[in-house]
Write a protein that binds this DNA or RNA. Structure first.
Length: 154
DNA sequence: GCCAACGTTGGC
DNA sequence: GCCAACGTTGGC
C-alpha cells in the first residue's frame, strides 16, 4: 500500500494556513465526492502516511505543505447536513457514502509551483501530473516523495 | 449494459 | 471565462 499521498485543496475552502491555525494543526478532510478518491481514504490510508498538501483552482497552484494522515476514516459529516454544499440526499446514517479523515499539517513549505513540478524529471511519473487527471487524492511513490522533498529543500 | 447528455475539475 | 477531459446520470 502506498505510504504517501498528494491531496488537493482549494485554498478558498481549506488552505494550508487554515490547517496551520487549527488546534494541533489538524482538520478533517471533508467534501471528497469522487469514489476513487473516497476509496483511497477508506481502504488504503493509514495513520502516519505522508501527505503533500496541494493548492488547486487558485492563482498559484502547487505544493504548499507537508502533512500526515492522523485518524482512521469516519463518515463525512457534511453529507448529512442539508445546509452544506456537500450534502448528499442519498446518504443515510445507516449507509453513508462518503468518508473524512483527519490531516495534520507538519509544516508549510515554500510554494512548489505546478510548472516546476512538471519540469522536474524525477516527478514525471507523478499521477497528479498525468494527462487528464482530476483526482483530488493520488498516491505518491517513495521516490517521488523524496524528489519533492529535495526540490523543496527539505 | 450502452451511451448521450450533462456536470465538474482545474489550469490557463 | 474558456475549454479539455473525465465522471455521473438516466433513458432505453
Amino acid at each position: 500500500m502506498p505510504r504517501f499521498w498528494l491531496m488537493k485543496s482549494e485554498p478558498d475552502e481549506a488552505s494550508v494556513d487554515d490547517f496551520a491555525a487549527a488546534p494541533r494543526q489538524t482538520l478533517p478532510w471533508t467534501g471528497v465526492r469522487n469514489y476513487q478518491a473516497r476509496n483511497f481514504m477508506r481502504d488504503d490510508m493509514r495513520i502516519g502516511d505522508g501527505v503533500l498538501f496541494y493548492h488547486s483552482s487558485c492563482a498559484e497552484p502547487g505544493i504548499v505543505g507537508l502533512a500526515r494522515i492522523s485518524s482512521a476514516p469516519v463518515p463525512d459529516a457534511t453529507q448529512f447536513d442539508p445546509a452544506s454544499v456537500y450534502f448528499d440526499p442519498k446518504a443515510t446514517a445507516e449507509q453513508p457514502r462518503w468518508v473524512q479523515i483527519d490531516v495534520t499539517l507538519e509544516r508549510k513549505t515554500r510554494l512548489l509551483p505546478l510548472g516546476e513540478m512538471r519540469a522536474a524529471p524525477a516527478l514525471a511519473t507523478m499521477r497528479v501530473l498525468a494527462r487528464g487527471n482530476r483526482l483530488s487524492i493520488t498516491p505518491v511513490t517513495p521516490h517521488e516523495w523524496q524528489a519533492v522533498r529535495r526540490l523543496l529543500g527539505a
